[in-house]
Write a protein that binds this DNA or RNA. Structure first.
Lengths: 124, 124
DNA sequence: TATTAGCTACTAAAGACGTAATAGTTAATA
DNA sequence: TATTAACTATTACGTCTTTAGTAGCTAATA
């Protein structure tokens, strides 16, 4: 079974992945919604219980570190989207992903290079 | 706010998207887990309450049709994955998506063509 | 030493989710 | 007409998710 994070858990993990680590207050500050300190703490403790984060003392406070990495959570989430919504079609998914106006030509080129590399490997 | 479906709701919508429509029994048959008839019915009614499906009579039974389409649910789900897990990097997401061994060269080529088209549009 | 600031631990609780039993309805059929 | 089969409607309920109040601890400080 692949790792499944609840929406709120994902919010918190995203902060930790971005910052590398965080205290309860640091995480709370970054999260968009105004959550009580104790709420964030509870979430982090829940995540710790599930083995997704760990903590160590940092002065008076605890500093939390991600244990589960984006890839771990990502492949599951992505597979699910791919499967259920795009019916397994990576093309369709990529199409939608790049349909967004905001994608820059540079980004598109870099992605194309990525593909070329991958194709080169396969042909050699 | 973008559309958010729970995992189970997504399972059911996926069936409806695939089949085009379905009765309670048809949906239940396709879903992997063995769910009681009444469970599937409840889910469909919930989805109807949220406006994601509608139904019409089909003989004795009701036939359910998707109202919410894959794109509607997809962009939200994909954006969320992109945002939270891949920190907004489409490259990173595509890399992971194509890292899978199972991706065929044909599929890769088709995706590259897609990119070329897109780039062509931008440059003209 | 008494107080305060800044934390963590504990406890509670509302609401969403998922599952299903059972009651009710309708149309075919024996 | 009485019975049965195939559905839908109603209702319940355990678990998970989220949120947060409050108690307790510790170190600085007035």
């Amino acid at each position: 079974m692949s790792i499944r994070l609840t929406p709120r858990e994902l919010d918190i993990m995203a902060v930790l992945w971005r910052l590398g680590s965080g205290t309860v207050n640091e995480v709370g500050d970054v999260i968009e919604d105004d959550l009580a300190y104790s709420t964030v703490l509870t979430m982090l403790r829940t995540l710790e219980g599930k083995g997704h984060v760990r903590h160590e003392a940092d002065g008076k406070a605890f500093r939390y570190y991600p244990v589960t990495q984006p890839e771990d959570a990502g492949s599951g989430a992505l597979d699910r989207v791919l499967d259920k919504i795009y019916q397994g079609s990576r093309e369709l998914l990529v199409t939608r992903l790049l349909a967004d106006e905001a994608v820059s030509p540079e980004e598109l080129r870099r992605i194309r290079e990525l593909l070329d590399e991958r194709l080169g490997e396969l042909e050699s």
